[in-house]
Simulated scan of single mutants.
Amino acid sequence: MSHPYRRLRDRAFWSRSVAGVAPAAIDPVGRFDLRIGPGDRVATAGSCFAQHIARHLDRAGFTHHVTEPAHPILARRVARERQYGLFSARYGNIYTARQLHQLVARAYGRFRPAEDVWIEADGRVLDPFRPTIEPGGFASEAEMRADRRQHLAAVRGMLETLDVLVFTLGLTECWHAAADGAVFPVCPGVSGGTFDRSRHRFHNLSVAEVAADLRAVVTDLAAVNPRAQVVLTVSPVPLVATARPDAHVLSATAYSKAVLRVAAEEAAQLPRVHYFPAYEIVTGPHARYFAPDLRSVTEAGVAHVMRLFLKHAARPEAAPGAGAPDAAPARAAEPGRGSGTRPVAAPASLADDGEALVAVMCDEERLARP
């Protein structure tokens, strides 16, 4: 007897490609058409997990495209505190596709949020859409607005000159302004601002909404950079907390990641858009890639993701280290000093079980603070 399954490759069968394979050797990447070389400018944005991608690209000899570098006189520690080089521009964590969509619209003057400055009780001034990028806040509103103009110019420069944008989807839950829907990276009152139930609304994005935001980003990017490619990943990191009154955080996490995964699959049907299964590599039943807190991804897990990314995406002429197994913690790099320079890596530490961890900047972590 004959049937279609008899002609399928091993990767189509659980017993041959998951259960029957050593965990570190599992490769769930299907079709992946993107190819990059060391000279290609790869921009990063997204949740905390996206910082790992930038760091490993640098270590493998590829170009992390940074258009908002630290001034050369800044010490490495100071540059990192101000989030220079963590992503391609100093936008901090972009947890949702809606945040990214609105950032692009703000960069080109198509969206001007009504609530665009937070002045704290002690006089410190914060940018509501980047509340943690300047420790201690700005000295004045004029200083904040000048920095924002420079930042949005850097975002435009990034979009117009990148070859590949890697965006890591992190959350569906978000807080936005009731007046115009402007999405904040974290709930007002957590990292600054004052929470007001009459002005701030909680929203849990649906598959349709996330997919629509991703399509809008791809369309906007193609308008200013027709050759640009996009790689979508889903962060494997669970929610710190859920604002849903009807849900346990475990169920809320499962919902959020399912929505993001489906929306990413839909968006990957668009031209020049690719999905890479970082989520599956870290969270599959084969994996043991979480630290004792069951949230932090160990360096071994990150290395597995990046080893496979470079294996499938790197051109033959790529750097010698591309795709090589490497689970060692990263050495801190110098702050970026110009377009195409590399990110500042976080210092390494060790988890209780001996698995190497590398710290990342994560605005969401503040939700769990007393």
Rank of each mutant, 00 (worst) to 15 (best):
S296H: 14
D246F: 13
P292A: 12
L57G: 09
S140P: 05
R82S: 08
A243C: 07
M158W: 12
F202W: 06
D27P: 02
V218L: 08
A318H: 11
M361Y: 12
G338Q: 07
R31C: 01
A254H: 09
E364G: 01
A75W: 07
G136H: 14
T242N: 10
L221T: 11
V231G: 00
Q269I: 04
E317M: 02
T132E: 11
L232F: 01
V282M: 07
R106M: 14
D326S: 12
G157E: 09
A287H: 03
A54L: 09
L260N: 02
V297N: 07
R227F: 00
R272L: 04
D147Q: 13
N204V: 08
A368L: 11
C174E: 12
A359I: 08
P347R: 07
C174M: 05
R106W: 00
H274R: 10
R90L: 01
Y279I: 00
R295W: 05
L57E: 03
R9I: 13
L171H: 11
G338I: 08
V302L: 04
T298W: 05
R76Q: 00
A25M: 04
A278E: 09
H312G: 10
A324K: 15
A313L: 09
V166H: 14
A153S: 14
V210M: 14
A254T: 13
I281N: 07
F290S: 03
A75G: 07
P325C: 02
V186F: 03
A97C: 06
K311L: 09
A313D: 10
E280I: 12
G321C: 04
M158R: 01
R124E: 00
E355D: 09
H3L: 10
R215Q: 06
G30R: 08
P69Q: 11
V358T: 07
F138C: 02
A24V: 09
S88I: 15
L270T: 07
L260D: 08
R76C: 03
S140A: 00
T298R: 01
D293R: 15
G92V: 02
S88Y: 11
T132C: 11
Y108S: 13
E115G: 01
V183C: 02
P245F: 04
D10N: 14
A332S: 13
Y108K: 12
H200C: 05
G193A: 10
F138R: 07
G137R: 14
N204A: 12
C362K: 04
P185G: 12
Y5I: 04
A178G: 00
C174T: 08
D163Y: 03
V231N: 02
V358I: 05
A24S: 04
V125R: 00
G109S: 05
S251G: 14
A12P: 10
A139H: 15
H151D: 08
R288A: 06
R369I: 11
T194Q: 15
L169N: 01
V259N: 04
A223P: 09
A114N: 09
V218D: 03
G192P: 05
P285N: 03
E141W: 02
A258G: 15
A228K: 05
Y91P: 05
S296G: 00
P245K: 09
A332V: 13
A348C: 02
G137Y: 10
E115D: 14
R197I: 15
P277E: 06
L57W: 14
S296K: 01
